[in-house]
Lab assay of single mutants.
Amino acid sequence: TKEGQWDCSACLVQNEGSSTKCAACQNPRKQ
């Protein structure tokens, strides 16, 4: 995982660090 990116806890899609919700399932980003 690149720095600043995060993996969705629900569907495991990798998202940009600037995103607050998963691009695939709209699950909110977990801190």
Rank of each mutant, 00 (worst) to 15 (best):
T1E: 09
T1G: 11
T1R: 04
T1I: 12
T1N: 15
T1F: 09
K2A: 01
K2P: 00
K2M: 15
K2F: 02
K2S: 15
K2I: 05
K2N: 13
K2G: 07
K2H: 01
E3K: 07
E3Y: 05
E3F: 06
E3V: 01
E3L: 02
E3S: 04
G4Y: 14
G4C: 12
G4R: 05
G4T: 15
G4N: 15
G4I: 14
G4M: 14
Q5L: 10
Q5D: 03
Q5E: 01
Q5I: 05
W6A: 12
W6P: 00
W6Q: 14
W6M: 09
W6G: 10
D7Y: 04
D7F: 01
D7G: 06
D7E: 14
D7V: 04
C8E: 08
C8Y: 00
C8R: 01
C8D: 01
C8I: 00
C8L: 00
C8Q: 06
C8N: 03
S9V: 04
S9A: 10
S9L: 12
S9F: 05
A10S: 03
A10G: 00
A10M: 00
A10Y: 03
A10P: 05
A10N: 06
A10V: 02
A10W: 00
A10Q: 09
C11K: 04
C11F: 01
C11H: 06
C11A: 01
C11I: 00
C11T: 02
C11V: 00
C11W: 00
C11P: 04
L12Y: 11
L12S: 00
L12R: 14
V13L: 08
V13A: 12
V13S: 08
V13T: 08
V13P: 03
V13D: 13
V13H: 14
Q14D: 09
Q14L: 10
Q14P: 06
Q14M: 13
Q14S: 12
Q14H: 08
Q14Y: 10
N15T: 05
N15S: 02
N15M: 03
N15L: 03
N15F: 00
E16R: 01
E16G: 07
E16D: 10
E16T: 10
E16H: 06
E16W: 03
E16C: 03
E16L: 05
E16Q: 03
E16I: 10
G17T: 13
G17V: 13
G17S: 13
G17Y: 12
G17P: 13
G17F: 11
G17R: 09
S18I: 06
S18Y: 08
S18M: 11
S18K: 13
S18N: 13
S18T: 14
S19V: 09
S19A: 12
S19W: 10
S19I: 12
S19E: 12
T20H: 07
T20P: 08
T20D: 08
T20N: 05
T20A: 11
K21L: 06
K21E: 09
K21F: 05
K21H: 08
K21G: 04
C22I: 01
C22N: 02
C22P: 03
C22K: 01
A23R: 07
A23D: 14
A23E: 15
A23Y: 03
A24R: 10
A24C: 05
A24M: 02
A24F: 05
A24T: 08
C25V: 03
C25T: 03
C25W: 01
C25G: 04
C25R: 02
C25M: 04
C25A: 03
C25E: 07
C25Q: 06
C25D: 09
Q26H: 13
Q26W: 03
Q26I: 05
Q26G: 11
Q26C: 11
Q26N: 14
N27Q: 15
N27M: 05
N27L: 13
N27W: 06
N27C: 09
P28Y: 11
P28A: 11
P28M: 07
R29L: 07
R29Q: 15
R29V: 14
R29A: 15
R29S: 11
R29W: 06
R29M: 15
R29F: 04
R29K: 13
K30R: 07
K30E: 08
K30I: 13
K30M: 15
K30S: 08
K30G: 00
Q31E: 08
Q31D: 15
Q31H: 13
Q31C: 03
Q31S: 12
Q31Y: 04
